[in-house]
Nucleic acid binder design. Structure first.
Length: 351
DNA sequence: CTGCTGTA
DNA sequence: TACAGCAGG
């Protein structure tokens, strides 16, 4: 989970048409995307898609079809994979692990009792993204000719950095953390089909892609990125998951506007000093100067290796060959058109 | 989440 | 053609 800044971005977020992204590169936090596929691509009883060996394949289905859809819309995704998480994230990762272990227990119980709604809920909560799944995703994307980047640390930070130095038009993520990391242009809800299921309910709502630009956001709020980061720290980030008790986005914003920075808020006795049991400066640095690198990887599209894709999806994971082949036709057509787009604009960079 | 099929 | 409902692996 990232920090919840939804209340603060309300006024600057704008719905966008996918057409606006035609011919543009978009960097994507791969873990974020894969995790969504793992939780969403399931049967009504909560079982994920699996191959004949019982191995989960939901992530491969999601990556494959979503990527082709993006390409058909002229959008070139750059998938950014996580490296080693920062030390400061270990408490949060531990917390998530514990939640999953509890969900696994409840899942077993629900199985025994045959409660289907519980079954679905807990199997989603128990979802784990393994290194093997990430590796399979990388391999599939490579064979599709899609650029991938291996981040030194957090994928979301690297994706934001790629955007900040102009190697992508936008960064796509569900979390707002990208903005804290300095992304200029954040796109949320980057999906093609507009319907999405509400959590734990069988209701579908229309979801449209939206854009939030960092500079207009800061201008509108009348604060600096440093101050936005302080707001996030007060609310709670992955590095201080519980934040300050009783402080949400609105209060955090008000306090930062009034006092400028967290230390001053403490001095003014607006929050108890002992409510901060973490190193503020260390967290600030993780957002302001994250461990990122200029990608050495080639960020241009390559030609897809069809045989390799069929080997992975059909031979190894029991995807339907005809479905895969028809999707590959769409991919090839999309690549031709996208290359045509770049020729028309006379640029070899796809902007 | 996304693709595909059946229905009007 | 458009869209609901189910299947995918």
């Amino acid at each position: 989970m990232g920090v919840d800044l939804s209340d603060l971005v309300e006024d600057v977020k704008a719905e966008i048409n996918l057409a606006e992204l035609r011919g543009k590169k978009v960097s994507i936090d791969a873990y974020n995307a894969i995790y969504q596929f793992l939780t969403a691509i399931r049967q009504p009883d909560g079982t994920p898609l699996i191959d004949s060996q019982g191995k989960i394949t939901s992530h491969l289905s999601g990556i494959f079809y979503r990527t082709i859809n993006l390409m058909e819309n002229g959008i070139i995704p750059i998938y950014v994979f996580d490296g080693k998480p920062p030390e400061l994230k270990s408490a949060e990762l531990q917390r998530r692990k514990k939640i999953k272990e509890e969900a696994e227990k409840k899942l077993e119980k629900a199985k025994e009792e045959g409660k289907t709604t519980e079954l679905k809920k807990y199997s989603q909560m128990a979802t784990r993204l393994t290194n093997e799944m990430a590796d399979e995703g990388k391999k599939l994307l490579k064979s599709m000719g899609i650029p991938i980047v291996e981040a030194p640390s957090e994928g979301e930070a690297e994706s934001a950095y790629i955007n900040a130095i102009g190697l992508s038009f936008a960064t796509a993520s569900q979390d707002y953390d990208s903005l804290l990391f300095g992304a200029k242009n954040l796109i949320r809800n980057l999906t093609i089909t507009g319907k999405r299921k509400l959590p734990n309910k069988d209701i579908y709502v229309e979801i449209k892609p939206e854009r939030i630009e960092l500079e207009p956001l800061l201008k509108k709020l009348g604060i600096t990125r440093e101050q936005l980061i302080d707001i996030a720290i007060l609310i709670g980030t992955d590095y201080d998951p519980s934040g300050i008790k009783g402080i949400g986005p609105k209060t955090a914003y008000r306090l930062i506007k009034k006092y400028g920075r967290i230390e001053k808020i403490i001095e003014a006795n607006e929050i108890p000093k002992n409510s901060i049991d973490f190193d503020i400066n260390q967290i600030r640095q993780l957002f302001l100067n994250p461990n990122v690198k200029k990608p050495e990887e080639n960020l241009d599209l390559q030609n897809p290796e069809e045989q390799e894709i069929i080997e992975i999806l059909v031979n190894q994971h029991n995807f339907n060959e005809e479905r895969v082949k028809s999707a590959l036709e769409r991919l090839n057509k999309a690549i031709k058109e996208t290359k045509g787009l770049s020729r028309q604009t006379g640029l070899d960079q796809w902007f």
